[in-house]
Amino acid sequence: MDTPLSPAAGNDAAPPPEPLHEQLSGLPAEPLTAGQLRELYSLMVAVRHLDTSAIAWQRQGLIPGYAPELGQEAAQVGSGYAVDTARDFVFPTYREMGVARAMGVDMVAYMSTHKATWHGGLYDPRESRLAPIQAVVGGSVLHAVGWAHGQTLAGTAGTGAVGTNTPGTNTADHTLGVAMTYFGDGASSQGDVHEAMNFAAVLKAPVVFFVQNNGWAISVPTERQVAGGSVASRAAGYGIPALRIDGNDVVSVVQATRKALAHCRAGNGPALIEAMTYRRGPHSTSDDPGRYRSLNEERDGAGEDPLERFRQRLLADGVADDAFFAEALAAAKAEEEEIRAGIQALGSRPGSEMFDLVFQETTPALQAQAANWRKESEHV
C-alpha cells in the first residue's frame, strides 16, 4: 500500500500514481479548539454512561436486546462529530449509538429499536441525517453508495461537473453531500461490502467507508477472517485511498474523518478509514465472550481506556479540570435518567402497521393476511 504502482506497459510517460494513503494523510488537519475538545469529552462520557446503562436495562427487562460499544466511544463520537448534518448522510449498523448521540439524534427515538417498539428507530432519518438502524451485517453499505451516487447525479445534472469552479455550476465544496457508512472487521468479509467499494470507486461516489476494527467478528478474532493483514489494505485493490488510524484517540478520529469527508466532497470519489479499537464487552447482550476469550486476553487486547486516555490528555494540556469532569459526569447521569423515563413511556405500535407499511400499494395476499390477523387478534 505504501509502494507506488508502476506505470502500465506502453505508457511510460505517465508518472507513478501517488501512494493511495498519502492522498488523505497529506490533507491539512484543522486543529480543534479547547471548547470542541471539552465537547468531545462530554459526548464520550454521555455515550459511555448510556451504553453501560443500556446493558443494565436489558438485564432488568426494560429492553429485550442491545449491542454494547464499550471501548469504541472515541471511534464513534469522533467520526459522528465530523459529520455535516446539513448535507451529509450516515448509514449505521446496530452498534452506532455513539455516532447517533454525537450527531444530535433524539436518543429515546433511537433506543426505540432496542426496545423493539419500531424497526429502525422512531427518529426522522431525513431530518437527523441518520438512516434507520441496520441489523443485516454489511447491509447498509450498498445503501450508502447508492445515496452517494445520487449526490453526484444531482450535482452534475445540467450544471457541469461536480467540483468545478465554473460560474453557474455547483461547487463540490458547498453542495456535495457525503455518505458515511459504518461496518466492522467481520462485515468486511461480506460480498456486499466488496461490491459496494467497487461500485463506489468506478462511479467516484462520495462515500466514506468507516471500518471499526474492534478485533472480533462476534467470536472470531480479526486475524482469522481478514486476509491481507488489514481492511484498509484492501482499499488499494479498488483504487480507494485509505487511512488506518488509532480508533481510541478521539482527536485523531475527528481529523481523519474530516480529511476523508473533504476528499469525497471535492469530487475525488470514495475513501476508507479503518479505526483500530477493541470491543471490551460482549458482541450483544445475548453473547458470552468468556466462551471464546479469557479475561486476561480481553485486558491485554483492550489497551488503554479511550475515555481515561482523553481525560488525561485534557488535564495535561490544561484544557479541563476536575470540576469540568465532575460536571460532565453529572450531566451524563441526568441525561440517562431522562432517556430511561422516555423509553419506559414508549407504548406499543399498532399491530396493523406490519401490513400497512410493507408495500406502497397493497396486494391481495397481504390483504388476506391482514384480514386473518384482525379476525384472530381483535384484542390488539
Rank of each mutant, 00 (worst) to 15 (best):
I245K: 03
G247L: 01
V253M: 04
A266M: 13
A271D: 07
S284K: 00
I245D: 00
E274H: 06
R258P: 08
I273M: 04
G267T: 11
E274M: 10
H283K: 11
M276Y: 01
C264H: 15
N268T: 11
D246T: 03
N268D: 11
R280E: 10
C264N: 10
A262I: 02
G239S: 11
N248T: 13
A256S: 14
H263N: 06
I245L: 05
Y278P: 02
G281A: 12
L243W: 03
L261S: 04
R265W: 15
G269D: 04
H263C: 07
V251M: 00
G239A: 15
A266C: 10
R280T: 09
R280L: 07
A260W: 02
K259R: 15
Y278F: 15
I273A: 04
T257W: 06
L243Y: 00
L243N: 01
C264K: 03
A260C: 11
T257N: 06
G281V: 10
N268R: 14
S252K: 12
R280G: 13
L272I: 09
V250N: 04
L243R: 01
V251I: 12
T277A: 06
R279H: 14
G267C: 12
G269F: 05
D249I: 06
A275L: 08
A242V: 12
D249F: 04
V250I: 14
A275W: 06
I273N: 02
S252V: 13
T257A: 09
K259H: 11
R279T: 11
I273Y: 03
N248W: 00
A275T: 06
A266I: 09
L261W: 07
H263S: 06
I240C: 01
